[in-house]
Design a protein around this nucleic acid. Structure first.
Length: 194
DNA sequence: TCCCCGATTAACT
DNA sequence: GTTAATCGGGGAG
């Protein structure tokens, strides 16, 4: 574990599969009627040439935030119910992003319990839909920058050592299962699946 | 315009 | 293990 390191802004211009593991251990938070945050413990990378990616068919009204420069947010609605949040990767015009799949809660646990309607801390930010609900993230945050002093922010957290990072196929997709672009912290209880 | 189905979740049997 | 919930993107006609 390493604390108080700096986030290098250039990492967001790297391809999503390179950026994704570097996001593990960073603290993602919002200040929306109260501060809530958590350490990123599970992510997945999606690229433009990737059949599982929303960017695969090119730019559209829905996915245009994916084509912003790295370091912005791409938020989408899935199954008509749940929001999912991505951190955009790569240069402007390149449709790549990293889906945030799980956080380890840090700040605003009481507010997150209220938003999630549960007292079970383990369920607050486990899974991409759940963590958006806990942090109050929806499409009003479409395309906002993640670095800087906005109401959505990313800060240095606790950087994992290489031996605690695992990777696997991505969850819930029906194509491109051979791409092992899911990265997560070994044995972390907030990761959505073992 | 119609139709299918998804980067999910929780509540079932 | 299975299934309903509920919206909107995108391909077919």
């Amino acid at each position: 574990m390493e604390r108080n390191y700096n986030i290098e802004p250039e990492i967001f211009l790297e391809p999503a599969p390179l950026l994704a593991p570097k996001l593990l251990g960073l603290e993602l938070g919002t200040s929306l009627g109260g501060e809530t945050s958590g350490l990123i413990v599970e992510v997945e990378a999606y690229t433009q040439d990737d059949p599982a990616s929303h960017a695969f068919r090119g730019i559209s009204q829905r996915n245009k935030a994916m084509f912003l420069p790295g370091g912005h947010l791409y938020v989408y609605l899935i199954y008509g119910i749940h929001h999912c949040v991505n951190i955009v990767a790569g240069p402007e015009g390149q449709g790549e992003a990293v889906l945030i799949r799980a956080l380890e809660p840090v700040k605003g646990i009481e507010l997150m319990k209220k938003r999630r309607a549960t007292q079970n801390e383990r369920l607050l930010t486990r899974g991409p839909g759940n963590l958006c609900q806990a942090l109050g993230i929806d499409r009003k945050l479409q395309g906002v920058p993640i670095l800087g002093e906005g109401e959505t922010w990313l800060r240095a957290g606790i950087r994992p050592t290489a031996d605690t990072v695992q990777f696997s196929s991505r969850i819930g997709i029906s194509v491109a299962k051979e791409r092992q672009w899911r990265f997560f912290i070994k044995e972390n209880p907030f990761v959505s699946r073992a």
